[in-house]
Design a protein around this nucleic acid. Structure first.
Lengths: 215, 215
DNA sequence: TCATAATATGAATAATTGTTCAGTTTGGGG
DNA sequence: CCCCAAACTGAACAATTATTCATATTATGA
Protein backbone atom coordinates (compact mmCIF):
# COMPACT_ATOMS: atom_id res chain seq x y z
CA UNK A 1 0.00 0.00 0.00
CA UNK A 2 1.77 3.12 -1.22
CA UNK A 3 0.38 6.35 0.10
CA UNK A 4 0.10 8.99 -2.56
CA UNK A 5 -0.14 12.66 -1.84
CA UNK A 6 -3.37 13.88 -3.42
CA UNK A 7 -2.34 16.05 -6.35
CA UNK A 8 -4.54 18.85 -5.16
CA UNK A 9 -2.50 19.08 -2.00
CA UNK A 10 0.91 19.30 -3.54
CA UNK A 11 2.70 22.63 -3.48
CA UNK A 12 2.50 24.65 -6.65
CA UNK A 13 6.10 25.55 -6.68
CA UNK A 14 9.07 23.98 -4.99
CA UNK A 15 11.35 26.51 -3.34
CA UNK A 16 14.66 26.89 -5.09
CA UNK A 17 16.36 29.58 -3.07
CA UNK A 18 17.17 29.73 0.62
CA UNK A 19 14.70 32.51 1.39
CA UNK A 20 11.89 30.47 -0.13
CA UNK A 21 12.65 27.59 2.17
CA UNK A 22 12.60 29.98 5.09
CA UNK A 23 9.21 31.23 3.95
CA UNK A 24 7.88 27.72 3.77
CA UNK A 25 9.07 26.90 7.26
CA UNK A 26 7.72 30.16 8.63
CA UNK A 27 4.30 29.48 7.16
CA UNK A 28 4.13 25.97 8.57
CA UNK A 29 5.31 27.16 11.94
CA UNK A 30 2.77 29.99 11.93
CA UNK A 31 0.03 27.52 11.09
CA UNK A 32 0.92 25.36 14.07
CA UNK A 33 1.06 28.34 16.39
CA UNK A 34 -2.31 29.68 15.33
CA UNK A 35 -3.83 26.22 15.43
CA UNK A 36 -2.68 25.89 19.01
CA UNK A 37 -3.64 29.42 20.01
CA UNK A 38 -7.04 29.87 18.42
CA UNK A 39 -8.04 26.54 16.94
CA UNK A 40 -8.94 25.65 13.42
CA UNK A 41 -12.09 27.72 13.02
CA UNK A 42 -10.13 30.94 13.59
CA UNK A 43 -7.40 29.94 11.20
CA UNK A 44 -7.49 32.21 8.15
CA UNK A 45 -4.99 32.48 5.36
CA UNK A 46 -4.47 36.16 6.10
CA UNK A 47 -3.69 35.52 9.73
CA UNK A 48 -1.25 32.74 8.91
CA UNK A 49 0.56 34.94 6.41
CA UNK A 50 0.63 37.79 8.87
CA UNK A 51 2.13 35.72 11.64
CA UNK A 52 4.60 34.14 9.26
CA UNK A 53 5.69 37.63 8.26
CA UNK A 54 4.85 36.93 4.66
CA UNK A 55 2.21 38.15 2.27
CA UNK A 56 -0.77 36.03 1.32
CA UNK A 57 0.34 35.97 -2.26
CA UNK A 58 3.63 34.40 -1.33
CA UNK A 59 1.88 31.75 0.67
CA UNK A 60 -0.25 30.88 -2.31
CA UNK A 61 2.84 30.21 -4.34
CA UNK A 62 3.63 27.21 -2.19
CA UNK A 63 0.26 26.13 -0.91
CA UNK A 64 -2.55 25.80 -3.44
CA UNK A 65 -5.15 26.40 -0.75
CA UNK A 66 -5.83 26.53 2.93
CA UNK A 67 -6.23 22.80 3.38
CA UNK A 68 -2.74 22.31 2.08
CA UNK A 69 -1.47 24.16 5.13
CA UNK A 70 -3.08 21.67 7.47
CA UNK A 71 -1.92 18.84 5.29
CA UNK A 72 1.68 20.02 5.38
CA UNK A 73 1.63 20.46 9.13
CA UNK A 74 0.29 16.99 9.71
CA UNK A 75 2.65 15.53 7.17
CA UNK A 76 5.66 16.89 9.03
CA UNK A 77 4.31 15.91 12.39
CA UNK A 78 3.59 12.34 11.38
CA UNK A 79 6.91 11.99 9.58
CA UNK A 80 8.79 12.99 12.72
CA UNK A 81 6.69 10.73 14.87
CA UNK A 82 7.34 7.84 12.51
CA UNK A 83 11.06 8.54 12.63
CA UNK A 84 11.05 8.42 16.40
CA UNK A 85 9.21 5.12 16.39
CA UNK A 86 11.53 3.66 13.80
CA UNK A 87 14.54 4.72 15.84
CA UNK A 88 13.11 3.13 18.97
CA UNK A 89 12.35 -0.07 17.12
CA UNK A 90 15.80 -0.36 15.68
CA UNK A 91 17.37 0.34 19.05
CA UNK A 92 15.37 -2.51 20.56
CA UNK A 93 16.43 -5.28 18.21
CA UNK A 94 17.30 -8.46 20.06
CA UNK A 95 15.78 -7.35 23.35
CA UNK A 96 13.11 -9.35 25.13
CA UNK A 97 9.59 -8.55 23.90
CA UNK A 98 8.59 -6.93 27.17
CA UNK A 99 11.31 -4.33 26.89
CA UNK A 100 10.27 -3.66 23.32
CA UNK A 101 6.74 -2.90 24.39
CA UNK A 102 8.00 -0.70 27.16
CA UNK A 103 10.20 1.23 24.77
CA UNK A 104 7.34 1.62 22.31
CA UNK A 105 4.96 2.90 24.94
CA UNK A 106 7.51 5.32 26.32
CA UNK A 107 8.46 6.71 22.95
CA UNK A 108 4.93 7.18 21.74
CA UNK A 109 3.65 8.60 24.99
CA UNK A 110 6.57 10.96 25.29
CA UNK A 111 6.20 12.17 21.73
CA UNK A 112 2.53 12.90 22.26
CA UNK A 113 2.85 14.56 25.65
CA UNK A 114 5.92 16.62 24.90
CA UNK A 115 3.74 19.34 23.40
CA UNK A 116 0.24 18.39 24.50
CA UNK A 117 -1.20 21.58 23.06
CA UNK A 118 0.19 20.76 19.64
CA UNK A 119 -1.00 17.18 19.86
CA UNK A 120 -4.47 18.32 20.77
CA UNK A 121 -4.55 20.98 18.09
CA UNK A 122 -3.52 18.52 15.40
CA UNK A 123 -6.04 15.95 16.56
CA UNK A 124 -8.65 18.60 15.99
CA UNK A 125 -7.26 19.92 12.73
CA UNK A 126 -8.10 16.90 10.70
CA UNK A 127 -11.56 17.97 9.65
CA UNK A 128 -11.13 19.63 6.32
CA UNK A 129 -8.35 17.38 5.30
CA UNK A 130 -8.35 14.10 3.48
CA UNK A 131 -6.01 12.52 5.98
CA UNK A 132 -6.52 8.92 4.99
CA UNK A 133 -3.47 8.82 2.76
CA UNK A 134 -1.40 10.43 5.48
CA UNK A 135 -2.54 8.03 8.17
CA UNK A 136 -2.15 5.07 5.85
CA UNK A 137 1.43 6.01 5.13
CA UNK A 138 2.14 6.49 8.79
CA UNK A 139 0.57 3.14 9.57
CA UNK A 140 2.59 1.24 6.98
CA UNK A 141 5.82 2.85 8.11
CA UNK A 142 5.28 2.15 11.78
CA UNK A 143 3.84 -1.30 11.18
CA UNK A 144 6.93 -2.24 9.22
CA UNK A 145 9.15 -0.96 12.00
CA UNK A 146 7.30 -2.58 14.90
CA UNK A 147 6.76 -5.86 13.09
CA UNK A 148 10.44 -6.11 12.30
CA UNK A 149 11.22 -5.35 15.91
CA UNK A 150 8.87 -7.91 17.40
CA UNK A 151 10.06 -10.63 15.06
CA UNK A 152 13.54 -10.03 16.46
CA UNK A 153 12.60 -10.54 20.08
CA UNK A 154 15.16 -12.55 22.00
CA UNK A 155 12.64 -14.46 24.04
CA UNK A 156 9.65 -15.13 21.86
CA UNK A 157 8.63 -16.21 18.41
CA UNK A 158 5.05 -15.35 17.69
CA UNK A 159 2.84 -17.64 15.69
CA UNK A 160 0.85 -14.80 14.10
CA UNK A 161 3.12 -11.83 14.33
CA UNK A 162 0.91 -9.62 12.19
CA UNK A 163 -1.89 -10.10 14.66
CA UNK A 164 0.23 -9.53 17.75
CA UNK A 165 1.71 -6.43 16.20
CA UNK A 166 -1.67 -5.04 15.16
CA UNK A 167 -3.10 -5.59 18.60
CA UNK A 168 -0.23 -4.00 20.48
CA UNK A 169 0.05 -1.00 18.20
CA UNK A 170 -3.66 -0.30 18.06
CA UNK A 171 -4.09 -0.68 21.79
CA UNK A 172 -1.11 1.47 22.68
CA UNK A 173 -1.78 4.27 20.22
CA UNK A 174 -5.49 4.18 20.94
CA UNK A 175 -5.00 4.33 24.67
CA UNK A 176 -2.76 7.35 24.41
CA UNK A 177 -5.26 9.15 22.26
CA UNK A 178 -8.16 8.34 24.50
CA UNK A 179 -6.20 9.47 27.50
CA UNK A 180 -6.01 12.85 25.80
CA UNK A 181 -9.73 13.10 25.39
CA UNK A 182 -10.53 12.25 28.96
CA UNK A 183 -8.58 14.95 30.72
CA UNK A 184 -6.89 12.76 33.29
CA UNK A 185 -4.78 14.23 36.05
CA UNK A 186 -1.02 13.88 35.69
CA UNK A 187 -1.09 11.28 38.40
CA UNK A 188 -3.78 9.25 36.67
CA UNK A 189 -1.91 9.46 33.39
CA UNK A 190 1.23 8.17 35.02
CA UNK A 191 -0.67 5.27 36.54
CA UNK A 192 -2.38 4.58 33.25
CA UNK A 193 0.91 4.43 31.44
CA UNK A 194 2.31 1.97 33.94
CA UNK A 195 -0.79 -0.18 33.88
CA UNK A 196 -0.83 -0.22 30.10
CA UNK A 197 2.63 -1.70 30.22
CA UNK A 198 1.48 -4.28 32.76
CA UNK A 199 -1.39 -5.15 30.49
CA UNK A 200 0.77 -5.56 27.42
CA UNK A 201 3.23 -7.67 29.38
CA UNK A 202 0.44 -9.93 30.57
CA UNK A 203 -0.72 -10.25 26.99
CA UNK A 204 2.74 -11.17 25.75
CA UNK A 205 3.13 -13.85 28.38
CA UNK A 206 -0.23 -15.18 27.37
CA UNK A 207 0.86 -15.31 23.74
CA UNK A 208 3.99 -17.23 24.65
CA UNK A 209 2.00 -19.64 26.80
CA UNK A 210 -0.45 -20.32 24.00
CA UNK A 211 2.46 -20.77 21.63
CA UNK A 212 4.03 -23.38 23.84
CA UNK A 213 0.80 -25.29 24.13
CA UNK A 214 0.46 -25.40 20.38
CA UNK A 215 3.83 -27.04 19.93
CA UNK B 1 -17.40 17.04 38.40
CA UNK B 2 -20.73 18.19 37.09
CA UNK B 3 -20.90 18.82 33.38
CA UNK B 4 -22.71 22.01 32.56
CA UNK B 5 -24.09 22.81 29.15
CA UNK B 6 -22.48 26.04 28.00
CA UNK B 7 -25.21 28.66 28.07
CA UNK B 8 -24.38 29.74 24.56
CA UNK B 9 -25.29 26.30 23.34
CA UNK B 10 -28.69 26.00 24.93
CA UNK B 11 -31.72 26.25 22.69
CA UNK B 12 -33.40 29.63 22.61
CA UNK B 13 -36.86 28.25 22.95
CA UNK B 14 -38.08 24.94 24.21
CA UNK B 15 -40.74 23.43 21.97
CA UNK B 16 -44.19 23.42 23.51
CA UNK B 17 -46.29 21.91 20.79
CA UNK B 18 -46.00 18.58 19.05
CA UNK B 19 -45.05 20.08 15.70
CA UNK B 20 -42.17 21.95 17.29
CA UNK B 21 -40.77 18.70 18.65
CA UNK B 22 -41.05 17.19 15.21
CA UNK B 23 -39.14 20.14 13.81
CA UNK B 24 -36.40 19.71 16.36
CA UNK B 25 -36.02 16.03 15.56
CA UNK B 26 -36.04 16.69 11.84
CA UNK B 27 -33.28 19.26 12.16
CA UNK B 28 -31.08 16.98 14.23
CA UNK B 29 -31.67 14.09 11.87
CA UNK B 30 -30.90 16.29 8.87
CA UNK B 31 -27.69 17.41 10.51
CA UNK B 32 -26.55 13.82 10.98
CA UNK B 33 -27.43 12.90 7.42
CA UNK B 34 -25.54 15.82 5.93
CA UNK B 35 -22.61 15.26 8.23
CA UNK B 36 -22.40 11.69 7.00
CA UNK B 37 -22.99 12.55 3.36
CA UNK B 38 -20.82 15.62 2.84
CA UNK B 39 -18.82 16.13 6.00
CA UNK B 40 -18.63 19.12 8.27
CA UNK B 41 -17.11 21.64 5.89
CA UNK B 42 -20.11 21.35 3.56
CA UNK B 43 -22.61 21.65 6.36
CA UNK B 44 -24.46 24.95 6.04
CA UNK B 45 -27.46 26.13 7.98
CA UNK B 46 -29.42 26.56 4.77
CA UNK B 47 -28.74 23.02 3.67
CA UNK B 48 -29.71 21.59 7.02
CA UNK B 49 -32.96 23.54 7.06
CA UNK B 50 -33.68 22.51 3.50
CA UNK B 51 -33.16 18.81 4.19
CA UNK B 52 -35.16 19.03 7.39
CA UNK B 53 -38.02 20.55 5.41
CA UNK B 54 -38.00 23.63 7.58
CA UNK B 55 -37.06 27.25 7.06
CA UNK B 56 -33.84 28.68 8.39
CA UNK B 57 -35.75 31.03 10.61
CA UNK B 58 -37.47 28.17 12.36
CA UNK B 59 -34.18 26.46 12.95
CA UNK B 60 -32.83 29.56 14.60
CA UNK B 61 -35.68 29.53 17.07
CA UNK B 62 -34.29 26.38 18.62
CA UNK B 63 -30.61 26.57 17.85
CA UNK B 64 -28.84 29.83 18.62
CA UNK B 65 -26.18 29.10 16.01
CA UNK B 66 -24.65 26.49 13.83
CA UNK B 67 -22.41 25.00 16.49
CA UNK B 68 -25.47 24.22 18.56
CA UNK B 69 -26.52 21.79 15.84
CA UNK B 70 -23.34 19.80 16.21
CA UNK B 71 -23.59 20.03 19.94
CA UNK B 72 -27.11 18.67 19.97
CA UNK B 73 -26.22 15.79 17.68
CA UNK B 74 -23.29 14.77 19.81
CA UNK B 75 -25.29 15.20 22.97
CA UNK B 76 -27.92 12.75 21.76
CA UNK B 77 -25.36 10.32 20.46
CA UNK B 78 -23.36 10.24 23.67
CA UNK B 79 -26.47 10.02 25.81
CA UNK B 80 -27.62 6.93 23.94
CA UNK B 81 -24.18 5.40 24.08
CA UNK B 82 -24.01 6.02 27.81
CA UNK B 83 -27.41 4.39 28.23
CA UNK B 84 -26.26 1.29 26.42
CA UNK B 85 -23.18 1.05 28.56
CA UNK B 86 -25.16 1.55 31.74
CA UNK B 87 -27.57 -1.18 30.70
CA UNK B 88 -24.73 -3.58 29.98
CA UNK B 89 -23.10 -2.82 33.30
CA UNK B 90 -26.27 -3.39 35.27
CA UNK B 91 -26.93 -6.62 33.43
CA UNK B 92 -23.49 -7.88 34.39
CA UNK B 93 -23.73 -7.42 38.14
CA UNK B 94 -22.42 -10.42 40.04
CA UNK B 95 -20.72 -11.99 37.04
CA UNK B 96 -17.04 -12.85 36.96
CA UNK B 97 -14.86 -9.91 35.93
CA UNK B 98 -13.83 -11.51 32.67
CA UNK B 99 -17.41 -11.71 31.50
CA UNK B 100 -17.91 -8.08 32.47
CA UNK B 101 -15.02 -7.01 30.30
CA UNK B 102 -16.31 -9.13 27.46
CA UNK B 103 -19.75 -7.56 27.73
CA UNK B 104 -18.26 -4.08 27.85
CA UNK B 105 -16.12 -4.64 24.79
CA UNK B 106 -19.00 -6.15 22.86
CA UNK B 107 -21.42 -3.38 23.73
CA UNK B 108 -19.06 -0.57 22.94
CA UNK B 109 -17.74 -2.10 19.76
CA UNK B 110 -21.20 -2.94 18.55
CA UNK B 111 -22.49 0.54 19.29
CA UNK B 112 -19.63 2.10 17.35
CA UNK B 113 -19.72 -0.23 14.36
CA UNK B 114 -23.47 -0.37 13.97
CA UNK B 115 -23.38 2.81 11.92
CA UNK B 116 -19.72 3.26 11.11
CA UNK B 117 -20.44 6.21 8.85
CA UNK B 118 -22.18 8.05 11.66
CA UNK B 119 -19.42 7.20 14.11
CA UNK B 120 -16.81 8.48 11.72
CA UNK B 121 -18.76 11.62 10.91
CA UNK B 122 -19.22 12.47 14.57
CA UNK B 123 -15.58 11.81 15.36
CA UNK B 124 -14.82 14.44 12.75
CA UNK B 125 -17.53 16.88 13.73
CA UNK B 126 -15.97 17.92 16.98
CA UNK B 127 -13.96 20.83 15.64
CA UNK B 128 -16.00 23.91 16.20
CA UNK B 129 -17.54 22.61 19.32
CA UNK B 130 -16.51 22.93 22.90
CA UNK B 131 -16.98 19.26 23.52
CA UNK B 132 -15.13 19.04 26.79
CA UNK B 133 -18.24 19.40 28.88
CA UNK B 134 -19.96 16.76 26.79
CA UNK B 135 -17.11 14.29 27.02
CA UNK B 136 -16.69 14.96 30.71
CA UNK B 137 -20.33 14.19 31.35
CA UNK B 138 -20.09 11.04 29.29
CA UNK B 139 -16.98 9.99 31.16
CA UNK B 140 -18.50 10.50 34.60
CA UNK B 141 -21.65 8.60 33.63
CA UNK B 142 -19.81 5.64 32.19
CA UNK B 143 -17.15 5.64 34.88
CA UNK B 144 -19.82 5.44 37.53
CA UNK B 145 -21.49 2.57 35.73
CA UNK B 146 -18.37 0.54 35.03
CA UNK B 147 -16.86 1.14 38.44
CA UNK B 148 -20.03 -0.04 40.11
CA UNK B 149 -20.01 -3.08 37.88
CA UNK B 150 -16.41 -4.06 38.51
CA UNK B 151 -16.78 -3.67 42.25
CA UNK B 152 -19.56 -6.24 42.06
CA UNK B 153 -17.49 -8.91 40.35
CA UNK B 154 -18.12 -12.37 41.75
CA UNK B 155 -14.52 -13.47 41.53
CA UNK B 156 -12.34 -10.51 42.33
CA UNK B 157 -11.98 -7.60 44.68
CA UNK B 158 -9.61 -5.00 43.32
CA UNK B 159 -7.25 -3.12 45.55
CA UNK B 160 -7.41 0.07 43.49
CA UNK B 161 -10.65 -0.18 41.62
CA UNK B 162 -10.48 3.36 40.27
CA UNK B 163 -7.21 2.53 38.60
CA UNK B 164 -8.36 -0.79 37.18
CA UNK B 165 -11.50 0.82 35.88
CA UNK B 166 -9.64 3.73 34.31
CA UNK B 167 -7.22 1.43 32.59
CA UNK B 168 -9.82 -0.91 31.17
CA UNK B 169 -12.13 1.83 29.98
CA UNK B 170 -9.40 3.94 28.42
CA UNK B 171 -7.81 0.97 26.71
CA UNK B 172 -11.05 -0.43 25.36
CA UNK B 173 -12.53 2.85 24.16
CA UNK B 174 -9.20 3.98 22.79
CA UNK B 175 -8.61 0.78 20.90
CA UNK B 176 -11.99 0.95 19.24
CA UNK B 177 -11.38 4.51 18.17
CA UNK B 178 -7.94 3.79 16.84
CA UNK B 179 -9.24 0.82 14.95
CA UNK B 180 -11.49 3.25 13.13
CA UNK B 181 -8.62 5.43 12.08
CA UNK B 182 -6.52 2.65 10.71
CA UNK B 183 -8.92 1.21 8.19
CA UNK B 184 -8.55 -2.45 9.13
CA UNK B 185 -10.22 -5.18 7.14
CA UNK B 186 -13.28 -6.80 8.69
CA UNK B 187 -11.21 -9.86 9.39
CA UNK B 188 -8.51 -7.87 11.16
CA UNK B 189 -11.10 -6.00 13.19
CA UNK B 190 -12.64 -9.27 14.31
CA UNK B 191 -9.25 -10.59 15.34
CA UNK B 192 -8.43 -7.34 17.09
CA UNK B 193 -11.63 -7.49 19.10
CA UNK B 194 -10.90 -11.02 20.20
CA UNK B 195 -7.32 -10.24 21.09
CA UNK B 196 -8.35 -7.15 23.03
CA UNK B 197 -10.50 -9.40 25.17
CA UNK B 198 -7.59 -11.80 25.64
CA UNK B 199 -5.43 -8.90 26.69
CA UNK B 200 -7.92 -7.57 29.19
CA UNK B 201 -8.40 -11.05 30.62
CA UNK B 202 -4.67 -11.46 31.04
CA UNK B 203 -4.57 -8.11 32.78
CA UNK B 204 -7.36 -9.04 35.15
CA UNK B 205 -5.67 -12.28 36.11
CA UNK B 206 -2.53 -10.32 36.73
CA UNK B 207 -4.44 -7.94 39.02
CA UNK B 208 -5.86 -10.82 41.00
CA UNK B 209 -2.44 -12.44 41.29
CA UNK B 210 -0.87 -9.24 42.57
CA UNK B 211 -3.76 -8.84 44.97
CA UNK B 212 -3.17 -12.29 46.41
CA UNK B 213 0.51 -11.61 46.88
CA UNK B 214 -0.23 -8.44 48.77
CA UNK B 215 -2.36 -10.22 51.31
C1' DT C 1 27.35 44.61 -14.44
C1' DC C 2 23.15 43.16 -16.27
C1' DA C 3 19.47 40.14 -17.66
C1' DT C 4 16.31 36.99 -16.15
C1' DA C 5 14.11 33.93 -13.27
C1' DA C 6 12.61 33.45 -8.64
C1' DT C 7 10.31 35.45 -5.02
C1' DA C 8 7.42 38.69 -2.68
C1' DT C 9 3.53 42.14 -2.31
C1' DG C 10 -1.35 43.30 -0.91
C1' DA C 11 -5.39 45.69 -2.66
C1' DA C 12 -9.24 43.97 -5.15
C1' DT C 13 -12.48 40.30 -6.28
C1' DA C 14 -15.99 37.09 -5.94
C1' DA C 15 -18.44 34.00 -3.56
C1' DT C 16 -20.26 32.04 0.39
C1' DT C 17 -22.95 31.86 4.33
C1' DG C 18 -24.47 32.70 9.20
C1' DT C 19 -28.03 35.32 11.07
C1' DT C 20 -32.03 38.47 11.43
C1' DC C 21 -36.74 40.14 11.41
C1' DA C 22 -41.10 41.79 9.68
C1' DG C 23 -44.77 39.41 8.48
C1' DT C 24 -47.74 34.96 7.90
C1' DT C 25 -49.79 30.67 9.38
C1' DT C 26 -51.31 27.39 12.77
C1' DG C 27 -53.23 25.37 16.91
C1' DG C 28 -55.36 25.20 21.36
C1' DG C 29 -57.84 27.06 25.30
C1' DG C 30 -61.81 29.81 26.72
C1' DC D 1 -65.94 30.25 17.13
C1' DC D 2 -62.30 33.41 18.11
C1' DC D 3 -58.16 35.13 19.88
C1' DC D 4 -53.43 34.98 21.21
C1' DA D 5 -49.29 32.89 21.59
C1' DA D 6 -46.53 29.59 19.48
C1' DA D 7 -44.52 28.24 15.35
C1' DC D 8 -43.04 29.15 10.85
C1' DT D 9 -41.36 31.69 6.56
C1' DG D 10 -37.46 33.22 3.49
C1' DA D 11 -35.74 37.32 1.26
C1' DA D 12 -32.37 40.53 2.67
C1' DC D 13 -28.30 41.87 5.24
C1' DA D 14 -23.71 42.02 6.88
C1' DA D 15 -19.53 40.20 7.46
C1' DT D 16 -15.94 37.27 6.54
C1' DT D 17 -12.51 35.29 3.79
C1' DA D 18 -10.24 32.34 0.28
C1' DT D 19 -7.98 33.36 -3.80
C1' DT D 20 -6.01 36.12 -7.70
C1' DC D 21 -2.91 38.99 -10.35
C1' DA D 22 -0.56 43.04 -11.89
C1' DT D 23 3.39 44.86 -10.07
C1' DA D 24 7.68 45.30 -7.34
C1' DT D 25 11.81 43.45 -5.35
C1' DT D 26 15.64 40.31 -4.92
C1' DA D 27 19.04 36.83 -6.11
C1' DT D 28 21.95 34.41 -9.41
C1' DG D 29 25.17 33.31 -12.88
C1' DA D 30 27.17 34.59 -17.12
Amino acid sequence: MIAVVPSSLKPRKRPQQARANATLDAVIEATIQLLVKDGYPQLTTTRVAERAGVSVGTMYQYFPHKQALIYAVNERYLARLAEKIEATCQASYGQPAELMVEALIDTYWKAKTERPDVTRALYRSVVEMDNEALLAEFATRTDAATTAMFSNASDAAFADIASVNRVLVTVIFGTVRNSFERAHSDQDVEDLRRQLLVMCRAYLQNCVRVDRELR
